[in-house]
Design a protein around this nucleic acid. Structure first.
Lengths: 356, 356
DNA sequence: TCCGACTGTTTGATCGATCAAATTACTTGT
DNA sequence: ACAAGTAATTTGATCGATCAAACAGTCGGA
């Protein structure tokens, strides 16, 4: 049995290839009875149009590109899992597929864009890990490439809401603010913050949420300065940094990630035995849930779905010419939610401290 | 400036399109000087052949398919991250790209194969999460679709080494065996095992490693039976099941995953205060490293690289006709390595037990 | 000198779809 | 009843590459 193609199907039906093409791409142009007959034949033969032929003619591949960030940067671990899954699933529902690629740097990523656009006619990209002075968005805008970013544009000068490109993000700052406020309510006066080194957009935003909450509560700027640390992600680094914050008087700690929070929890437990560790993490990873760590949860699936929706809408528009369905929100800030958990006392006896 | 194409480049050089095509696909057929001239022109113009046109003619897309497993099945979390990354990177180096797709079930996955093959001319697939009675491998073999599996074929009857399809796997059984032996050496007599419900291939293999080590040490079959539990993944479930094993006399526990191990560690610490928790996990996740949990590490990047190597070799072979580079190992069992860590005493005071 | 073998290059056909324009069929108004 | 207009369908050209076969140029040997 030979492969069914437009022509072979047309011949066997006694109609022209274009009619079949129309049934698929512009059904309204075909007389209802003809359409029904063709549709029946299509499903009977299991005909599927060739992506390559279509792509060659239309210059559209129905493929979306996504750079896989190096392990342990930005969204990682189980968050990546959830994000990827939602992205793939949504794209698939809309007839798109996801193509992955790696890049060493933003410059390399841009180079990959060129390659993917020229060679594979990738229709658009999903960006993650936006940061200050991001070259990528500028390049994509300059070249009229459709894309949606997960992460706001972080150019201080500009209001994200006026950005020329579409983005979805989670209001991490509001999340850490909520966590900080909760600790204030609990009676904590010195609340520390463990964050990543400045420059990572999302990380800075989360720190800002904590900062403005303390400032609003009347904590002196100098004091705020003393209560924060900027370190790379990790449980060990978190523990070490937490020790310093505790030495500086912190009785509660808000963290930019669950890893750091786990480390901080150990130190808080040691410093204040008996008292539940006052600490919150970020991302609400399974570990946090398991260990009973409070954490700021991101609606990551919703973010992924929206990113795809924005992107596919943009793509549909360039084809149809603007009519049709209303555009989804171009700048969407989703709320993060603090998940409060009964703070189990944690004690993992880091060796350096010499627990029995 | 118009897009450079084979013809436009050929015209500007005064040669025919086929010559340029040859320079790219069969350089040996072109006279060295012509070749040099063409190559210079290619890099000067930044010409890249269109994937669609090439795909239409050759019926090869240079795309590999990978099903994204539902979150929390098989390889998950940070393991997925590492696996995906290595896969994408290796594929990219070999000129392939990775296309993701979702499926609800194995049957649905097979349905996606058909779609992807017919529509997108996907060249081959990488399979994960092989299990008993896997329909997918049979289908792919029947349809002569190139693929490489991460995971052995688990048909009890058959010797994996004789399997008709290529696979890479990690010897999880050897890993748990090593862990079990280590506990025996430490003087433990009753070593429990926390595993997943039977049927998951990898999970059963890991249990078998523990089982045969105990049997070899002279533990009665009935006793072995008492020392194992089959449960779904998770820290809480691990803690609960561990409590039962401890009640049954276990003083050390080997686990099929780090999540379960984390739960088990809490319970062991409670049952035997002061003594370092005798527990090992699996996958050597960042959490295990951070918390000081011993764990069996999988060389997941190596596995991914090998899977791609096998697949690309297979693909190259069907084109060139069999000559060229020697075939990589078709059935490769990579060693797992027990990472022993100073077992920090863990105590997370699960509420139900009522720690002060 | 002429033929066959080989090397290097070019030409025509093709992959399977869509676009744009041409053709035919069917209404409708006057 | 006929021109004009619209609806439905068909035809020719095209996207950009590779395949297969034809074509020229070189060389050694009879």
């Amino acid at each position: 049995m030979t492969k069914t193609t437009l022509v072979s199907l047309a011949d066997s039906l006694g109609v022209s290839r274009q009619t079949i093409s129309n049934v698929i791409n512009a059904p309204h142009r075909v007389k209802p009875e003809t359409r029904a007959r063709v549709e029946a034949a299509i499903s009977a033969s299991g005909y599927r149009p060739s992506a390559a032929a279509r792509q060659l003619r239309t210059r559209r591949s129905m493929n979306l590109g996504l750079r896989l960030m190096p392990v342990h940067d930005g969204i990682n671990g189980s968050i990546l899992d959830r994000f990827l899954h939602a992205l793939t699933e949504t794209a698939q529902r809309d007839g798109y597929r996801l193509t992955l690629f790696c890049a060493d740097s933003d410059a390399d990523e841009i180079h990959q864009y060129e390659e993917l656009l020229q060679v594979s006619d990738i229709d658009g990209f999903v960006l993650t890990g936006t940061h200050h002075g991001d070259q990528r968005t500028a390049w994509l805008l300059d070249h009229d490439v459709p894309f949606a970013a997960f992460g706001r544009p972080w150019n201080d000068a500009e209001d994200p809401r006026r950005s020329r490109h579409a983005w979805v993000d989670v209001d991490g700052g509001a999340g850490t603010a909520e966590a900080t406020a909760a600790f204030l309510d609990d009676g904590h006066a010195s609340i520390g913050f463990l964050g990543w080194p400045a420059g990572s957009g999302a990380g800075d935003d989360r720190r800002a949420g904590w900062q403005r909450t303390l400032a609003a509560a009347g904590v002196a700027p100098g004091r705020i300065q003393e209560l924060t640390a900027s370190i790379d992600d990790g449980v060990q680094t978190g523990a070490v940094a937490a020790r310093h914050l505790i030495a500086a008087g912190a009785t509660a700690i808000v963290c930019v990630s669950d890893s750091l929070a786990l480390g901080a929890a150990m130190e808080l437990r040691r410093a204040f035995p008996g008292v539940p560790a006052a600490v919150t993490g970020f991302d609400d990873t399974p570990v946090a849930a398991a260990v009973g760590l409070s954490s700021v949860a991101q609606p990551i699936e919703a973010a992924a779905r929206h990113a795809v929706a924005v992107l596919t809408h943009q793509l549909a528009e360039t084809t149809t010419g603007g009519a049709g369905v209303p555009a989804p929100e171009q700048h969407l800030l989703l709320p993060a939610a603090l998940v409060r958990r009964t703070p189990y006392p944690l004690d993992t006896g880091i060796p350096t401290a010499g627990t029995p």
